[in-house]
């Protein structure tokens, strides 16, 4: 999934620059949590933006399906109030329907904003907002480690699959542990490699930032104001 999401992030239609995107979503999320009107506006706008960005949006929507199904079921049958329907000992109340409704609206609205970010923004674009030097460097280095490790894990998985390593749960557990161990070994080889690669190029504590164009600021401000206006409707 990472692999494909990474390429989605590279190829999606972004409408605005990374800075504008990240700030728009980060500032909109609190408003979305607070106000119903803002939720409706945000849901509409971010769904459109996400759909425009990539068709992959529709698949992302399915990812939390189990979580939503389970939690909403609990909310629906648990919160007490005036009974409006019942199934054996399970009761649905006016209150539970109300909470479930408002939760789902908030959830989908926030999730659409979150998806727009996930579909369009690469991790380095996000990390570059972090100004704490050592943290930024650890994050960028670890992301690079993840890129390499996932590639290696993928080929190990294929190699195991080709030799029937995932047939049945027992074997699956064994093979997965084996791959985990390989990943562990490769990880620690990677430390040495990072150190050498850094040293070979005069490392003196600097990790340059990704170049990212600005742009789209006006659009971002307009979208934000639209969501903000929800508070006053």
């Amino acid at each position: 999934m990472t692999e494909s999401l990474e390429s989605v992030q590279m190829n999606s239609k972004k409408v605005m620059g990374p800075k504008a995107r990240v700030w728009l979503v980060l500032l909109s999320l609190p408003l979305i949590l607070l106000d119903t009107q803002s939720q409706l506006i945000a849901l509409t706008l971010f769904s459109l933006l996400s759909l425009h960005a990539s068709r992959y949006y529709l698949r992302l929507l399915l990812a939390p399906a189990v979580f939503i199904l389970f939690s909403t079921t609990v909310i629906l049958f648990t919160i007490e109030g005036k009974e409006i329907a019942s199934l054996y000992f399970l009761k649905i109340t006016d209150k539970s329907v109300e909470v479930a409704q408002s939760t789902l609206l908030r959830c989908f609205s926030a999730f659409s904003a979150f998806c727009y970010l996930v579909l369009t923004t690469t991790l380095p674009e996000f990390v570059n907002l972090i100004r704490v030097g050592f943290l930024r460097e650890i994050m960028l280095l670890s992301y690079r480690a993840i890129q390499v490790l996932l590639e290696e894990a993928e080929s190990l998985k294929i190699s195991a699959e080709a030799r029937l390593g995932f047939l049945g749960l027992r074997r699956w557990v064994k093979t997965t542990a084996l791959i985990g161990h390989m990943m562990f070994l490769r990880s620690f080889e990677r430390v040495e490699k990072f150190e050498m690669a850094k040293e070979a190029r005069c490392y003196s504590g600097i990790f340059p930032s990704a170049r990212s164009e600005g742009g789209g600021k006006i659009l971002a401000v307009m979208i934000f104001l639209a969501i903000f206006s929800g508070l006053f409707i």
Partner: peptide, 19 residues
Amino acid sequence: DQIIAPTVWEEVAFGPANA
């Protein structure tokens, strides 16, 4: 083994920035 930054620009700018 050599590429240590996740994006092309960060990678190629690493050496000159440090030097």
